[in-house]
């Protein structure tokens, strides 16, 4: 595999994470607990869709030929999607969404701070923009974690349940496979394994402040990067890709 091909695959991973998580967030529009939050959640969804587009656009350039951002979003099947499993789980209740965002965004912030210094200037540029967004997302997420964790009994138990249900999906966020290792070596990609400890520290701190328990468990699911997904992704894609599948190749 050439470096270009490896960078393209890397872009698709990051683009897929952003698209699939952005899609789940976009399901909240008109369903949030109150109007202000409806608008705020939609803003976050827009950040993620925007991030996906930037990664896909770069992947399209690296592919040469006719590929566009939409080629990647709308014409690949489940096995070709390489997003982390945590991104595709159904949106659940508001606590599930908040906890998922908090766990993911906490890493995204650390990740983008590093990727900003990538030797690949395009990736570095995308990361610089994403870092600003992630800073805001984490700020929001942290405050919500405190409110839910340290709020009522009901909100506490919903938040704890979400933490417990999501925890096993976080391990995959740090794994470094052969492709990532090669790109880390080349100064292009981020060594996520090295982010495990700082992530755990900052997440545990907030969970504790929120009176939530950090799970002590070794269940850890993986597969997303290899195209092994939960059943949920197929249904998500069926909806996301409906138009392009029903009317292939048209402009809209």
């Amino acid at each position: 595999m050439t470096v270009n091909e490896a960078v393209k695959t890397y872009c698709l991973r990051l683009g897929d994470d952003a698209l699939i998580l952005g899609h789940r967030l976009s399901e909240w529009t008109s369903r949030a607990p109150f109007l202000e939050e409806d608008i705020a959640l939609t803003n976050v969804a827009l950040d993620f869709v925007g991030r996906a587009r930037l990664f896909y656009q770069y992947a399209a350039e690296l592919s040469g030929g006719d590929a566009t951002e939409d080629t990647f979003a709308y014409t690949r099947d489940v096995r070709e999607f390489s997003n982390l499993l945590i991104c595709e789980l159904p949106r659940g209740d508001f606590a599930f969404t908040i906890v998922r965002q908090f766990l993911f965004d906490s890493l995204a912030l650390l990740f983008m701070e590093k990727l900003k210094h990538s030797d690949d200037s395009r990736l570095a540029g995308i990361a610089a923009k994403a870092e600003k967004e992630a800073t805001y997302h984490v700020r929001r997420g942290r405050e919500w974690m405190l409110r839910l964790g340290d709020g009522t009994n009901e909100s506490h138990s919903r938040a704890q349940k979400a933490v417990d249900e999501l925890w096993g999906y976080t391990n995959e966020m740090f794994e470094v496979d052969a492709l990532a290792a090669t790109l880390i070596e080349a100064g292009i990609a981020v060594d996520t394994e090295a982010l495990r400890a700082p992530w755990f520290e900052s997440v545990s701190e907030v969970l504790t402040e929120a009176t939530l328990t950090v799970p002590d468990t070794d269940w850890a699911v993986e597969g997303g990067r290899r195209g092994i997904h939960t059943d949920d992704l197929g249904f998500l894609l069926a909806e996301l890709q409906f138009m392009q599948r029903a009317y292939p190749g048209l402009r809209w």
């Binding site: 109007l35 202000e36 608008i39 705020a40 803003n43 700020r139 929001r140 405050e143 409110r147």
Partner: peptide, 15 residues
């Protein structure tokens, strides 16, 4: 509408 001033500030940004 917001819960506290910090949240009001963030929603002001979003809204």
């Amino acid at each position: 509408h917001a819960d506290d001033p910090e949240q009001a500030l963030e929603y002001a940004r979003d809204v």
